[in-house]
Design a protein around this nucleic acid. Structure first.
Lengths: 335, 335
DNA sequence: CTGAAAGCGCTTACAG
DNA sequence: CTGAAAGCGCTTACAG
């Protein structure tokens, strides 16, 4: 299976390489007969242009690098899906990089992506440290932030307004008649999804119920086990809670599992509200009432923003917020 | 941010490009002083070699194309994770392609991957049609099959022995004292995961219980809704079943949901056994007893097989089977 | 150990 | 409309 190149095609078709190239890139500029001849030879020889060579002269590869914490995370996977569909639509491919939130891996990947001449980087679900920002600048590649943002650096970003979303969730719970509401929060050092949701919750408690709910909160890292453990502590401390808002669906499910083991019914005794609306949420018993993040749309919008940058469009909004939505299902009941 | 090339480095360091190149590729062959000089200039100028140019001469890109049905599928995402970690380990990157089982998209992607000069293709979770096989041959790229296989074509593959796994699952249920066992199967036209698991189940019924269980089966496409609907039909037809084996965790959960709505307890009244062991399975109530596929390992092994091919190692096993495992949890009870 | 030159496979002014 | 030539950024024999 010898590689067939443009030279082979040109020879076989009896034209110059320039002509073959033109047939590929601006067919109208080529005499019809020749064009068809070339096209036939291309088919016959099964010629595939070499995108490396082409990229070398165009200085574009139509490839994007995507940094994510972990594909196997349901939330992330959905975001990627949105990115990939959109990239395909614009004729781009995605190079996938799992960082595990590991700075070293990120730096390594960024290096490689630069070398592979990706046209841009989509950076997902991770805070932008100053080292990272410096690296971005040094690489000189367009960067778009998906499901994260930076207040310090001027990087285009797309995410949900987490503070507002959490505020709305708490308000929803209050609207359902709940007064003693706990929260299972992400870590407050996570300024993207931890602190924001925490403050949104607190603000609702303050504004709507005039209470300081700081002691109604336990923390975890968004995982099932974290939710389970947090619920255990929370229940011990505040046995009279009637509802709990969890900063992730997975923690919500962990919480429900603990309550179930204790013979406490959801939503009969305690209502549980999640966050994310991963697929999981609607397949659970009880089906989870939760704050939906438009994951697919976040991925889609991030890539669209990247395209705007690459196409040199005028600056659109730097920091975009996509609408969240409260999905009413069965894990919260009226009180 | 002007692009700095090897030429810039060579000029600045006062050596030839050849020398710069050598410093990068076989540093020992370069005089120490010069080498350090060059290294310093590289650092100073923040030089990043251009992988396109390099790939053009090496005829290798250290990139792999990955065709998958859908990243947002938990099973697939886990497989990809295994691939990506392993690829990284070997110094490779992954270009992600969601096919949605759409032949046209596949063909299109394969075309692009060929043009981008990927070193190989990992094809996942989809049957290999004759058109596809022809395309593979035409492209002349190494292909490895992950979580699928081909009996007709000699393509290296990695998967679980689904027939045996289903056989073991049914046997497990029988061992727990169940005699009237239903199955929610994938479609039999799906010869990879549908027919195989179906036959494995039937074989166990025949060998262990001497019964023909053909009328104990309903079919679905592995999704939640399918499981729900199949369970409904199955229950109507065979109300005296005590256990059901589902060809996916998601369908198992759909089935449980239906039973729950009918006030039938799992595993109290009916035991349910799943397949896959996606993360989901252990977070459910009841925690799902299921057949675990080593998803991460499948991805890992697939990439390892690819590396063997690329490194021209001697042929190892063409069709590999990774061990499945029965994970006992709470959705099946002794009878 | 080091440099000049050719070549990897394309595209793009520049002439004609 | 078409071809020859230069160039994209690297590597690799080939001399020295």
């Amino acid at each position: 299976m010898e590689k067939v190149t443009m030279k082979d095609v040109s020879r076989q078709a009896g034209v110059s390489m320039s002509t073959v190239s033109r047939v590929l890139n601006s067919p109208e500029s080529v005499n019809r007969e020749k064009r068809e001849k070339v096209l036939n030879v291309i088919k016959e020889l099964k010629y595939h242009p070499n995108a490396l060579a082409r990229g070398l002269v165009y200085k574009r590869t139509n490839s994007l690098g995507v940094l994510i914490p972990d594909v196997s995370n349901a939330y992330v996977a959905e975001v990627i899906r949105g990115m990939e569909d959109t990239a395909l639509h614009f004729g781009y491919n995605l190079i996938l990089c799992n960082t595990d939130l590991d700075q070293e891996k990120m730096v390594k990947y960024l290096q490689v992506l630069k070398e592979k001449q990706v046209d841009g980087i989509v950076f997902t679900s991770e805070p932008v440290t100053s080292e990272l920002n410096e690296l971005f600048e040094q690489l000189g590649l367009p960067v778009v932030l998906a499901s994260t943002q930076s207040l310090e650096y001027n990087l285009p970003s797309v995410k949900v307004d987490d503070e507002k979303a959490a505020y709305d969730a708490a308000t929803y719970l209050i609207g359902k008649g709940h007064r003693k509401i706990g929260m299972i929060s992400g870590p407050t050092f996570d300024i993207i999804s931890g602190a924001t949701r925490y403050y949104g919750f607190q603000r609702a408690m303050k504004e709507k119920l005039q209470i300081n709910a700081e002691n109604m909160v336990e923390f975890g890292s968004y995982r099932f086990e974290d939710g389970y453990n947090a619920m255990k502590k929370l229940l011990k401390r505040k046995p009279d809670m009637t509802a709990v808002f969890s900063a992730s669906d997975e923690m919500a499910v962990g919480a429900i599992t603990y309550l179930h083991e204790e013979g406490i019914s959801v939503p009969g005794d305690i209502s549980i509200m999640g966050y994310d609306n991963t697929k999981f949420a609607s397949m659970y018993i009880p089906k989870l009432t939760t704050v939906a993040q438009p994951m697919y749309e976040i991925g889609k919008t991030a890539v669209e923003k990247m395209m705007e940058q690459l196409e040199g469009k005028e600056e659109t909004t730097l920091r975009s917020y996509l609408a969240h939505q409260i999905i009413e299902r069965d894990s919260v009941r009226e009180r």
